[in-house]
Amino acid sequence: MSVAPVPISRAAAAADEVILRTDELRTYFKAGRAGVVRAVEGVNFSLRRGKVLGIIGESGSGKSVTARSILRIIEPPGYIAGGRVLFKGEDILQIPEKRMRTIRGNEISMIFQDPTTSLNPYMTIGGQLTEAYNSHTPSGSEKARDEAVRVLKLVGINNGGEIMKKYPCQFSAGFRQRIFIAMSMILYPDVLIADEPTTSLGITIQAEIIEALSEVQRQTGISIIIITHDFGVAAQFSDDIFVMYAGRCVEFSPKRDLLTRPAHPYTIGLIRSVPLLEERKTRRLKSIPGFPPDMSALPPGCPFAERCEFVGEPCREEMPELRAVSGAHLCACHYPQQYNVSEDTELGVF
């Protein structure tokens, strides 16, 4: 199947209003003498206003580095090597650090994987929430307290007044993660980046946290980027899904297209290999052969070529560009596939 390349900007413009967009974002890490690890290499995606974007990838695929690059919190030896991050149309990689500080937490905020370390153990919950509020909009303790109670209610904590007098260690990991979501929401940012917010939590606590995030989203209309390695989480929570592999974009599409008609061999491989909650036709899973590549010694061309069953000559030479396969469905592959999950006889559940 051959598809005429469509510039990203045009494909994206067809969709709703875009609040955050990355354009050829590249983040590298210096490694040893003259060595460079290209952790993020030309990432393009857009986040629609009021929608949830799920970023899926394995460990080391560059999803967290992408998120941290957006907020410019990459620490040496890492550095942003190029590209643009357009937030409300403005390239926030170019603005001075001082202005960036007013964006972090205030307009774009982030929650992290480990809820046990993201709160200060020596400060009461109330102290931390009001500090977060006052750091951007100094307006006295009374107002900050009211805001804190309001935002705790947003994540389903109704006895905020009591909770605020306590310390993080008095709560379970799931509860702390909810408090952290409340803290990241206290200034009603436009964008919330959630980096594996439920990975270390149990199944029911994971569902509670995502339920809380959905509720926050429904009430405030915030746009959310959720980073996860769990296809199920992304499938249930996101509107759009972005798949990363070895620091590259692989596929980016509205959820339904990506899940029912994935075009990239890696995405297809993932969908066919993940254990399903529903009964599948075959007892054996269809596994992707091989291992993810060594990021410090990536071969030229497509990083998935080594493991790909549809590999052809151009794959080992040239990195394929992200092109439209249909509408807003973009795929970076020299040989995008025509695959339909509902016709997959091995799965038989969709």
């Binding site: 389903g156 199944i203 029911t204 994971q206 569902a207 509670e208 995502i210 339920e211 959905s214 769990d230 296809f231 199920g232 989480v233 992304a234 499938a235 249930q236 929570f237 996101s238 959820k255 339904r256 899940l259 029912t260 969908i271 993940v274 399903l276 909650l277 529903e278 559940v349 969709f350």
Partner: peptide, 23 residues
Amino acid sequence: LLQAAPSIKKGLTDENFTVHLKP
């Protein structure tokens, strides 16, 4: 547990995350 477990199929049928447990 079954209701809370994420799944691709639930995503396709637009099933939200729900927990049938008392908080």
